[in-house]
Design a protein around this nucleic acid. Structure first.
Length: 274
DNA sequence: GGAATTTGACCCAT
DNA sequence: ATGGGTCAAATTCC
């Protein structure tokens, strides 16, 4: 039962990752103005890109729904609100899907004021680039772990104390050359007044979304962040190079629910492509 | 001065 | 006993 579920999830993750790679290809192409004698194909890129985004959105939403279905607790919801963007070069880390929701949550044992995270990760994602995931995180520790070359950083939601938000995440650098970070999320946010749908809605506008994916080679500055995510990035600050950075995830706060409906408009255009 | 980060100590699960 | 996760004082940043 659980085994079949995790296999389903594995498949979905795989499909989503492939769509992610395809999307990155699209974005890279459209950014590097290659339409000398390929204007026709070039003009289709926005459509292709939006389609890929739609596929991506579908995977993410399905994964989210799948997890919410099996949510037995009322405290620790198992939700996925994260899309990952694979590195440009292939990342040799097929093992990370094994970690995804390998079981249900376990009850925490609070003793005094010292609480540990529940042992079941909510979501694991790999990325090579910086991320703004729409939430404000507060770093509360870092560790060098055995058999790991790089630091692992611990973050909790900034609203842990004023709103009791239980979400935390760990960011582990796992590769140097193409920088690669594995982010593990635990719990989910209750600090934002989202409705019942925590689902990631992919924006149909290339102008908004492609900004996130254009960072493959250069790290964004603080100013760039503030341009993209004016509402959430007030606490961002530049970090020294060797400090583990957040990875790049499409910003949930940018994706209005109305955008999701827009995606349906492209459905009939799909036939004319290829 | 408040908020975020750093960092070593502390605590707990295994 | 040990490794990993968290706390919290000191420090840095804004």
């Amino acid at each position: 039962m659980v085994n079949q579920r995790s296999r389903m999830e594995e498949e979905l993750v795989k499909g989503r990752d492939i769509a992610n790679q395809l999307l990155e290809l699209c974005v890279h192409r459209s950014n590097s103005h290659h339409h000398h004698h390929e204007d026709v194909k070039g003009s289709m890129l926005p459509f292709i890109e939006d389609l890929v985004r739609k596929v991506l959105c579908s995977f993410t939403n399905t994964l989210l729904l799948l997890n919410n279905d099996n949510d037995v607790s009322n405290e620790v919801a198992v939700s996925m609100t994260v899309k990952d963007v694979p590195p440009f070069s292939k990342c040799p880390n097929p093992h990370h899907t094994d970690e995804v929701c390998k079981g249900f949550f376990q009850t925490k044992k609070p003793r005094g004021s010292y609480k540990r995270k529940s042992s079941a990760p909510t979501w694991v994602t790999n990325s090579s680039i910086l991320v703004e995931d729409g939430y404000v995180w507060r770093k509360y520790g870092q560790k060098i772990t055995t058999n790991a070359k790089y630091l692992r950083s611990y973050y909790r939601c900034t609203h842990k104390h004023d709103k009791g938000c239980p979400a935390i995440k760990q960011v582990q650098r796992i590769q140097e050359d193409p920088p690669l970070y594995q982010t593990t999320y635990y719990g989910h946010h209750n600090c934002k007044s989202f409705s019942s749908s925590d689902i990631v809605m992919e924006s149909a506008s290339p102008s908004a979304s492609s900004v996130f994916l254009s960072f493959s080679n250069t790290l964004p500055t603080k100013e760039q962040y503030q341009l993209q995510t004016s509402s959430v990035s007030s606490s961002m600050k530049q970090e020294p190079v060797e400090v583990i950075q957040d990875e790049l995830i499409a910003d949930q706060s940018l994706l209005a629910s109305s955008d999701y409906l827009l995606l349906c408009d492209y459905e009939h255009d799909f036939i004319s492509i290829t």
